[in-house]
Design a protein around this nucleic acid. Structure first.
Lengths: 235, 235
DNA sequence: ATGTTTCCTTTATGCCTCTAAGCAAACTTA
DNA sequence: TAAGTTTGCTTAGAGGCATAAAGGAAACAT
């Protein structure tokens, strides 16, 4: 943190209050209630005043989303760090479980992050995208460390189209992972995150009321693909 | 179809035009552009006129969503019926592929159906819910027929919580399936539909540009769990 | 002490949903 | 066929939203 004058400090406080108010409205009344006007009204300000803090509704939404990403990231890192640095298996599983725990204890927030249909072109330097990448990296780094320390078996050959596509992504990661390992990582990611999204969006309510055991089953299926011992890190 | 007077016919035509206009706006300008006013304007009517056809914005959205479900259902049934009634394996795979094909050739529509956050309490007799159940049944019926004709191995024991939850759902289906089979069905469904949703919502754009081979890989992994021969029904 | 920056206000435009009142054409019925 | 009723639309209007513009007052810098 850079030292700031009083002016700057007050401004930061107001910014934080705006984001907190937006979050409260989201939780209490749903995403549609998070309007510039409503947030300002809650704070005892006039609507247009908020334009001194955010360029518009979309930027406010992006800032709040970034907050959620950061909070989720912190929670996951804390859960991960309850295990020693070398225990990549338990650390990864703890990270996954922390993600789901946060998601279901913060449904409106998680739904807001996930189910935001691509509203506009996403600039890669926006706070939202930066925080999103940090979130992604919690998994990626632990995964890469796991691969470093104890590589697991990967498919001998990949579908040519998949290989081609993943080559660019793998290179952009700069983690020295082989394409095949990245493919395994993404397969697991799709299963885990896909399940979570369906749960939070209520797409499975027709059959389930509590998806915790389904999530654990998913972890149990995924673990051996990474050479992990699920039973050794059961919940 | 019941015989109708001229009056009723004109009304049906206007209803159809409204839904078609709403769909066109969705495709051309995104979901936010589908407003009562915009639809009416496009049709050369005044806004409030639409309230003679739909009780409000939400009902219009529901009607359009039901249209999408019905169209998707028809496409899947047509693809399924290209295979003889007894060939449950190829019929199921064709149904899955038709679902994805429709989804990616109708991204706005599919995204609209899926990513509609639970906007209000859903009444189970609304057109949207009815059409949604028909869609669900295309998979369920073929799956039940497959089980009838050639039961596949199912897990010997289920997590007690999962078993308890699925008992109610299984009973409500009235298809005479065992709970274990329903569990296998839902596991496959979650993987397939979850992947599709992530694709359409752009959640995998960071790594993939074309998910067709990933989808096929998913089918290849799912098929043996249902006792199906993937290679015999490769694309 | 003066000028500038910052914060917030009110005002205004144009969009949205939805209600209400009213008119005219089309049907129904006596 | 004439009167009454239903239907399909209109305009008017209330209230909310995003956003732009203009202005006042306080805080800050010099």
């Amino acid at each position: 943190m850079v030292a700031q004058g009083r002016r700057a400090r007050v401004r930061q406080a107001t910014l934080a209050e705006i984001r907190a108010t937006a979050r409260r409205l989201l939780i209490e009344q749903g995403s549609a209630a998070v309007t510039i006007n409503a947030v300002a009204r809650e704070m005892g300000m006039s609507g247009p005043a908020l334009y001194h803090y955010f360029a518009g509704h979309e930027e406010l939404v992006g800032a709040v989303t970034a907050d959620f990403f950061r909070e989720l990231t912190e929670v996951m890192e804390a859960a991960r760090d309850e295990h020693p640095p070398g225990d990549h298996g338990p650390r990864l599983l703890a990270t996954c479980r922390a993600m789901r725990t946060w998601a279901i204890t913060h449904r409106p927030e998680f739904g807001w992050v996930f189910a935001s249909p691509i509203t506009s072109e996403r600039r890669p330097d926006s706070p939202r995208e930066l925080a999103g990448r940090d979130f992604e990296h919690v998994f990626l780094e632990e995964f890469a460390a796991l691969w470093e320390s104890r590589p697991f078996p990967v498919p001998a050959e990949l579908d040519p189209s998949i290989r081609r596509q993943l080559q660019a992504y793998t290179a952009s990661l700069g983690l020295g992972l082989p394409v095949e390992a990245v493919h395994v990582f993404l397969s697991c990611w799709i299963r885990l995150y896909g399940l979570l999204c369906m749960e939070v969006l209520g797409q499975l309510d027709f059959a389930y009321t509590d998806l915790e055991p389904v999530f654990e089953e998913c972890l149990r299926e995924i673990a051996p693909r990474l050479g992990l011992d699920y039973e050794a890190a059961a919940p």
